[in-house]
């Protein structure tokens, strides 16, 4: 018991020593992302807005119309894409974080989890900034009176899917970071996987459009994807505040939370097990 306590103590001390570095690295990732582009940080808003417009134009006629479930298609789309994009950027950045910082890892001692952690946190900050696009788009539709969204106080519940996604991204990111040090192939594979995930997650379509019977095997398999539940919760809080209890899936909330925590534990375990060997492979 005492040994565990001293181990935890020294880990916390170590983290406190390097908290400045964590902040510097998060800052760096955000700053450098848009450096030397004319519009700079403004791309954080512009990029999701433009993709939303493109996707809305492409899929409006296929998925947007005659579906009673989808209130306002562009907003519906934006909600899903923002959260999904946060997950993919965070995990992809974490995955490449060790290789990208190899020159530093080879020369300076720093606790290595700082690299994937800062990658995920900087994606998180970018995501939080990009949420203002959602506010702007909702205001736009409400002011013009086109398919207005009635946002209620339930909107505070978005914190739940956001936090679960953060934990999930960190866990998956640590796993990917570890594996990709030894097998670079994973980086290519994961790109394809993310594309698959994009179509498996109800982002451009509403799950009711799939014509699966409630409780059917296909739908259950689809719900195993944690992003299914996370995107659903996010939308329930933002769009369906009026009919919240009907749209907020408690089972999926528990499922995604447990899934995320398991990923985090597995991620840290794997990372700690192999981190001393990283330097021999990068």
């Amino acid at each position: 018991m005492n040994r565990i306590r001293t181990a935890a103590r020294s880990h916390i001390d170590n983290f406190m020593k390097y908290r400045f570095l964590l902040r510097e690295l998060v800052n760096k990732n955000i700053k450098l992302q848009y450096r030397s582009s004319v519009l700079g940080i403004f791309w954080t808003f512009l990029q999701p807005l433009l993709t939303m417009i493109v996707l809305a134009f492409v899929f409006m006629n296929v998925f947007g119309k005659d579906s009673s479930k989808v209130v306002n298609y562009p907003v519906y789309l934006l909600c899903g894409r923002l959260l999904f994009n946060f997950y993919t950027t965070a995990t992809k950045r974490a995955m490449t974080s060790i290789r990208r910082q190899s020159s530093m890892i080879k020369k300076v001692y720093v606790p290595k989890y700082i690299y994937p952690l800062s990658a995920v946190l900087s994606s998180f900050v970018t995501f939080l900034i990009s949420l203002t696009v959602l506010v702007v788009v909702i205001l736009f539709f409400n002011l013009r009176g086109m398919d207005p969204i009635s946002v209620t106080w339930r909107v505070v519940y978005i914190i739940v899917p956001i936090l679960i996604t953060l934990v999930l991204s960190l866990g998956v990111g640590m796993i990917l970071a570890t594996v990709s040090v030894f097998f670079k192939d994973v980086e290519n594979l994961y790109d394809v996987f993310c594309l698959l995930l994009f179509y498996l997650t109800p982002i451009v379509y509403h799950p009711s459009r799939l014509n699966f019977v409630e409780g059917s095997l296909q739908l259950r398999i689809l719900k195993l994807n944690p992003l299914y539940g996370l995107v659903g919760m996010f939308r329930a809080a933002v769009i369906w505040g009026k009919d919240f209890s009907h749209n907020w899936d408690m089972v999926l909330m528990y499922y995604t939370s447990i899934f995320a925590v398991v990923m985090l534990v597995v991620g840290f375990w794997l990372f700690y097990r192999y981190q001393d060997k990283f330097i021999l492979h990068i």
């Binding site: 020593k17 390097y18 570095l21 510097e24 690295l25």
Partner: peptide, 8 residues
């Protein structure tokens, strides 16, 4: 600032 942060 970055370099100094790596030294804590």
């Amino acid at each position: 600032f970055l370099y100094a942060a790596t030294m804590g």
